[in-house]
């Protein structure tokens, strides 16, 4: 049971990593002079869309969480709309936090917002897919000892690693190397992406390594 779960998790994560990698290479076939650094905003949009799509497809197909009892169409639509609103809210929240962290308020607002979008894609979208629009469940998962399945455990790891990645990504900005990737918000988005990918890669391994110690209350 457990090993098959871990294997499924691993495949899912590989798929996500693959989508991130593809989003850097595929567009250059269709778009002229596309590169991650120079047309950064385009890349951000493409990466965000592809990661969201993969997440959605995957969770619709695999359904790691138990299906809810009520499954009327209106309920589903309401749930979907709620998810959308949550996603937008998280984007705005991140934007506000970035500004509070010192991002410029007026200039580069689009860049900042797209950074917020990509960070939401890496963190909020998986949460929404797995846990649904349920703040209590989110808080439970992200407090200590609150996880109840390996899915939630991996969600915790990837989310935290994305945050840490974007946090660390801010460090090179003040250095005077004058590299193109030191411009706001490129280093942060790259940091978030690397953090996300690292989280995706590490979490199945970590769970596999600690599978003896991990006991979840509900299964």
């Amino acid at each position: 049971m457990k090993d098959t779960d871990i294997r499924r998790l691993l495949y899912a994560h590989l798929l996500c990593i693959f989508s991130v990698i593809l989003s850097t290479f595929i567009p250059s076939l269709f778009l002229e002079d596309f590169s991650v650094l120079e047309t950064h905003l385009t890349w951000l949009c493409i990466c965000s869309v592809s990661v969201t799509a993969v997440n959605l497809v995957f969770y619709l197909v695999v359904k790691p969480n138990p299906p809810s009892r009520r499954s009327s169409l209106s309920h589903k639509v309401g749930r979907f709309l709620k998810c959308c609103i949550y996603f937008l809210m998280s984007c705005f929240c991140f934007h506000v936090i970035f500004v509070l962290y010192g991002a410029p308020l007026i200039e580069l607002a689009l860049e900042t917002f797209l950074f917020a979008v990509i960070l939401s894609t890496f963190t909020t979208v998986p949460c929404l897919c797995l846990l649904g629009p349920n703040i209590k469940a989110w808080l439970r998962v992200f407090s200590r000892n609150g996880v109840t399945s390996i899915w939630e455990n991996s969600l915790q790891i990837t989310t935290i690693s994305s945050f840490v990645g974007s946090w660390l990504g801010a460090f090179p900005i003040p250095l005077d190397w004058e590299r193109p990737w030191q411009v706001w918000p490129i280093s942060c988005t790259l940091g978030a992406t690397f953090g996300y990918v690292a989280g995706l890669a590490v979490s199945p391994l970590w769970i596999y390594w600690n599978r003896k110690q991990l006991t979840y209350k509900n299964n």
Partner: peptide
Amino acid sequence: SSFIEEEHQTWYFLVS
């Protein structure tokens, strides 16, 4: 040296 010149950024970042 850049981090010393911009040490305020470090502290703002940490406090945030």
